[in-house]
Design a protein around this nucleic acid. Sequence first.
DNA 1: CGCAAATAATTTGTACACATACTATAATTT
DNA 2: AAATTATAGTATGTGTACAAATTATTTGCG
Lengths: 164, 164
Amino acid sequence: MDQNIQAISDIIDNVRRIFQILHEQSKQVEKNTGLTGPQLWAIKIINENKSINLSELAHRIYLHPTTVVGIVDRLEKHDLVRRTRSRSDRRMISIELTEKGESLVKDSPEVAQGLLAAGLEELPPNQLEEIDRSMKSLVKIFGAQKIPPKLILSSEISLPREKI
Amino acid sequence: MDQNIQAISDIIDNVRRIFQILHEQSKQVEKNTGLTGPQLWAIKIINENKSINLSELAHRIYLHPTTVVGIVDRLEKHDLVRRTRSRSDRRMISIELTEKGESLVKDSPEVAQGLLAAGLEELPPNQLEEIDRSMKSLVKIFGAQKIPPKLILSSEISLPREKI
DNA sequence: CGCAAATAATTTGTACACATACTATAATTT
DNA sequence: AAATTATAGTATGTGTACAAATTATTTGCG
């Protein structure tokens, strides 16, 4: 029974560590690129889409549209991004990278989940399965099997708008 | 190999889910108690200590002292907490709960890590060991074996002051 | 067609979260 | 005892993060 207590305490410690690591990494990125975590994440998504409207961007980075307004404001102020009113539906704006934004996105580091994926790929199948089972157990404990997964970024996590 | 890809994607999804769950829970608490996650956490710690100074409180909840000033400000404004200048060392203030604060802390819910611990306690030893190994693998991937663990609370995670 | 409902973005207000800089007090050095 | 250094708390400014209210535009329905 004593061993159980040890294991439980270890697990909790490690969950905490992972939280911190993710947080630290986003701070690291901040130092290296001059962009904050959410800002980098945003331009990565914009880059993948060539052009995207604000709601869709908010949806993709799992943030509130109101929050994204501010993020885009700052990116625009730094001339990394451009806003244009959509011609077809004039309620929408379309957001694109400037040349400066494009060159920045090229040599900006991977976000947390890229790192995780790369690390996992090096593990043998049986270990992967074990980790898979374990994570499922944790998710089950937290009782949220039905909540759809969102992206990781330490302190920038938040609830997305309702639904797909 | 296809199975590996599936497992990797599952794992990442579940890490994301856990992040969200922790975040959602702190929002849940907010609705039920009128206190935000950090505020609740703070008064729990204050309650455990009867009286605590600001730096120590900041250390215990793993936040910057500057952040904690604001949190204590708001708690004080709601008359849940009282600040008094220490007589022995007049640089320090001591923070205590008011009667209102004490009654509130009594019937406020557990924080995230309490939930996790309770859930883990119900698992059989072999499963605990598996989860333990798995978390260690993840921590290793993120390459932070040496970082000391801090507490969990979704969006309120941050780096503590530089150690003791 | 005309106007109400729906949608897209923004504005405003609250609360973290941190870095930097500042004030007051205490401890240490000289 | 005076000067230096360290410590405790605060003030200020930037950047998330979200809810509620606002504005402009489109769409849908009678």
